[in-house]
Amino acid sequence: MLDKIYEIFHDRMIHKGKGVGVGSGFTSEFLMISFFLIAGILVLRTANSILFALGSILILAAILFTVPSVFRVEKENTDSINLTSFYVAISIVTILIVFFAGSGVLI
């Protein structure tokens, strides 16, 4: 699988400045993977310790399926106003739900 990943990065990043492009692609992929791992561990650690052991293995497995996730992030963060609107709507709803549910008003 890893040899394929290098090919993918090489193809996608070649127009962003040869070796340096592939390097930055790998760095950002590494950052994304670590972020998912860290976020997952953080959530599970604060939730339950038995879940933690199982969950971190599950997260690792899940991450390996999403590789390379960088290009997806790039696609979702373009200058398009519609995508931003979508994420704004999602965030507004998330904030409302978190504040209401977290304060025990909804549940």
């Binding site: 930055s24 692609g25 950002s28 950052l31 976020a39 992030v73 790039e74």
Partner: peptide
């Protein structure tokens, strides 16, 4: 904040 940190630096790495 965590989300912004990750997305911001991943996007920064892609720019030319």
């Amino acid at each position: 904040a965590i989300f912004t940190v990750v997305v911001g630096s991943v996007m920064a790495l892609q720019q030319t």
